[in-house]
Amino acid sequence: MNWTQILVNFVGLTAIAWIVAYFWLYRKRGVAAAEVSGLQEVNIKVKGGYDPDVIVVKRGRPVRLHFNRQESALCSEMVVFDKINKSARLPEGETVTVEFTPEQVGEIPFQCQMGMLRGKVVVTA
């Protein structure tokens, strides 16, 4: 094995380690919802993902997520909150609001219909 081969193999294995770390091991930090007169509101940009994609809210108070889809790719056409049985269609360029009141501490994931784009609402006490 010459130096080139060693170098190439090293780069390849590093790439694999990096893929695992970057896509799987990364822990996202949440964005806290802004509270206005008891309502917890967040604007979420939908473009190849949800931005922000982790939203921290408090239990027992109504949450309003304003989704704004800024792309025409069909993948993000719909957002699904499976755990609370809600879904919304997101026409391009429009703001669509999903409203609910989390009663329990925990996580409420949301995603596109195919599960490629994901986000979650983290409910704290």
Partner: peptide, 19 residues
């Protein structure tokens, strides 16, 4: 274009998809 922009947006979210 959509493959590259889509891939980049997903990448920023530490996600990867078909793009």
């Amino acid at each position: 274009r959509q493959f590259f922009t889509g891939a980049w947006s997903a990448f920023k979210h530490h996600a990867a998809d078909m793009n």
